[in-house]
Write a protein that binds this DNA or RNA. Structure first.
Lengths: 195, 195
DNA sequence: AGTCAGACTGACTGTGTAATCAGTTTAATA
DNA sequence: TATTAAACTGATTACACAGTCAGTCTGACT
């Protein structure tokens, strides 16, 4: 692993755990056993490092969903929604630091003034909504999902799933125990009663 | 308004907008036109000030729901759920800084090591879940809501509503436009088909 | 007028911070 | 072996920060 990669790796961890303001470059240098100045050789400043970390998260999420869809087939749209939800939850457990970072306030603040940051977040959330929206559209076409607006419903489902993930990472409840209920309630919300 | 009240007010605003680490005592002093040392006369340190702010948020939320229930009657449990959702969304718009603060990471980090902070958060989230849970139990009793676990369902609905509020404050989508869809999807999730 | 406690403040301190820079090491190429 | 560019670093800087402290102000009570 190059030093640049080590910095990005440790940076992702620290930014996720302690936030942007809570992370110091000195701490990052110590954690990676790299001289402080080396970080500034590879990244212009702290914000550029943060953006590089966010870009990696973005790429990771896109790649992850691509692989999921390449390796799975679904009987119908409703099952596809369920698959996407369960994969989202799996990903949130498996790549916890991605979601910790996205559940922090700083990226959204930065996005207000930094177009690159805004772009990365847009790509990430467009990816999230798209996967749900595609599944809903397919379900409406094959009759497994009733007649509801695909985009807005996708947003509500994303809010719900992301909300549960957030509760889990903040240890507010044993939110992991909610996964089955979440899935059942989602199905009830979407399924076509005429079938 | 006493200087202590002014500090709490401006503190709530700054902690909500910029987070704990992003807020400086000097900035707070400047904003309130108060000497920096005065803040430390009223509050032992930055953390104590933060806890005092969080306590005010907690009290505000409890009081707010008490008043809502004192001034409203509901035809049945399902309508009570809808009422609570719409009041939650109203409160999130009306007292934005409360929810900004609760959507930050810092309080939950602090709660891991500070029992007072943990207690405040518990009270707040118990309040949130209780209002939903009571409505669901009532709906199950009067037949407007089908046979589902009240507590876990309350948690999922809270995740969903809170998730939409978070999306709105982060300006991820025009999440305000989702309110009607959210309500409709919730009703579909809960309503008793036998009625 | 004198006393006193609580409210308040300006000036200060020591620490931690992001960022810089002049210079050294490394590794590949001529 | 000599050259060169990229990778890297220790030492340093200027500054912002939370918190302290000695002392002043204010207003109520005697």
């Amino acid at each position: 692993m190059t030093k640049k990669e080590a910095i990005l790796l440790a940076g992702a961890k620290l930014f996720a755990e302690k936030g942007f303001n809570g992370t110091s470059m000195a701490e990052l240098a110590e954690l990676t056993d790299i001289a402080g100045a080396t970080i500034f050789y590879h990244f212009k400043n702290k914000e550029e490092l943060f953006l590089a970390v966010l870009e990696q998260v973005k790429d990771g999420i896109l790649k992850s969903f691509d692989e999921y869809f390449a390796g799975n087939v679904f009987k119908n749209g409703l099952e596809m929604v369920e698959g996407v939800i369960s994969y989202f939850l799996f990903m949130a457990g498996h790549k916890e630091e991605w979601f910790l970072l996205l559940h922090r306030n700083h990226p959204y603040r930065l996005a207000e003034v930094n177009p690159v940051c805004r772009r990365y977040l847009e790509v990430i959330y467009n990816c999230f909504t798209d996967v749900f929206e595609r599944a809903i559209r397919r379900g409406r076409a094959d009759g497994s999902i009733r007649d509801i607006p695909a985009h807005k419903t996708a947003l509500v489902i994303l809010s719900m799933v992301d909300g549960v993930v957030r509760f889990k990472t903040y240890q507010l409840y044993n939110a992991g125990a909610l996964y089955n209920n979440l899935m059942e309630l989602c199905r009830r919300m979407l399924e076509n009663p005429k079938q």
